[in-house]
């Protein structure tokens, strides 16, 4: 286990370094000098621009620039935002909790929807319920999040606005927590349903596989109640591979979160990323893109560890 963690840690670190080189490389070779502030602003005189470039270290060769950036990043200095002139680290980290809260609740919602539906679908394979669930899953992963978001806004935010079912669809950044929960419902629903669609299929497939195993037949032959067989014997094992799928969905959910935050004006990192890209605020873009990459790599390790923890047949060496 210890050796596994060390090896896995080295591979992950290498991956993260490679990703940072790619992201930095793209910014370094991109036209328009995105690493240099005011680089394209015509009102800044050329000599002042050269000074600025020098002060940012941009006249050095790209590898040196990368090294300087990486050293500062590791030390916790993520630079200063071009547009707000405040520290990037505080700005980005300040937005992480909202995003994590939305993503976390959507994950929970997705799992709560997908597991029961998937289990029942597999148990009653080819039944009417199963066919409904299949159709739901197909609709779910064919609908892009930006469209489901708009449809939900139309239904709950506009059509049902004056009924008790009406929900706010614009995030009020100054509001107290109580109304934050209400305005989080729609974005969480969009992301949760998107995640649930794919997950339902996996739970069903995994459950079907387990239901065909000998030990399930043994459990039934012992005269256990069907409910016990289904939940205590079959489901517990069927959900193990699902853990991996959930972890692999993390990058996708992050992608969905960027779009959803944009639609519902959720003040999270996705929203910050889009505004930063639009205003050429490179330090913020860099910090968020790279931060998402680190989180994705981290979640993959967590998934492997959980898998090993739940399945004693798996030995991490």
């Amino acid at each position: 286990m210890g050796r596994y963690l060390i090896r896995r840690g080295i591979v992950s670190a290498a991956t993260i370094v490679a990703i940072s080189i790619v992201v930095f490389g793209i910014l370094a070779v991109a036209p328009g000098d995105p690493l240099g502030e005011f680089a394209t602003n015509p009102s800044v005189p050329p000599e002042r621009r050269a000074e600025l470039r020098a002060s940012l270290g941009l006249d050095e060769p790209v590898p040196v620039q990368y090294w300087n950036w990486a050293r500062l990043y590791v030390q916790g200095d993520w630079g200063e935002s071009f547009s707000t002139k405040t520290g990037v680290r505080e700005y980005v980290l300040g937005r992480v909790p909202v995003t994590l809260a939305v993503i976390g609740s959507s994950f929970l919602l997705g799992i709560l929807i997908a597991v029961p539906i998937g289990v029942v679908s597999a148990f009653k394979q080819y039944s009417l319920f199963d066919q409904f669930a299949t159709t739901f899953a197909f609709l779910g992963f064919s609908i892009p999040t930006f469209f489901s978001g708009i449809v939900l806004i139309y239904i709950f935010g506009i059509r049902l606005q004056d009924t008790p079912l009406g929900l706010p669809f614009v995030f009020d950044r100054t509001d107290p927590l109580a109304s934050n929960i209400k305005q989080s419902i729609l974005p969480v629903m969009v992301l949760g349903l998107a995640g649930a669609a794919g997950l339902t299929r996996f739970v069903r497939a995994s459950m079907l596989e387990v239901l065909g195993q000998d030990y399930v037949r043994t459990a039934r032959a012992k005269g256990l109640r069907e409910q016990t067989v289904l939940i205590a014997h079959a489901m517990r094992n069927a959900l193990i591979p699902v853990i991996t799928i959930v972890a692999l969905q993390v990058p996708e959910i992050f992608g969905g979160a960027i779009i959803t935050e944009q639609i519902f004006t959720v003040p999270g990192i996705g929203n910050a990323l889009i505004s930063a890209i639009r205003s050429s605020d490179t330090p913020v873009v860099m910090a968020i893109t790279f931060g998402v990459a680190i989180l994705v790599v981290l979640f993959n390790i967590i998934a492997d560890l959980l898998y090993a923890a739940f399945d004693p047949r798996i030995k991490l060496t």
């Binding site: 992201v23 793209i26 910014l27 328009g32 992050f254 960027i258 639009r278 968020i288 893109t289 990459a293």
Partner: peptide, 23 residues
């Protein structure tokens, strides 16, 4: 391939289209 899989897809997609669009 593994490295490409670990790349943050949507952020990079947005970033590259923004940076290289004009040229």
């Amino acid at each position: 391939t593994d490295m490409f899989i670990s790349l943050p897809q949507l952020p990079l997609l947005l970033l590259i289209s923004f940076l290289f669009r004009e040229s």
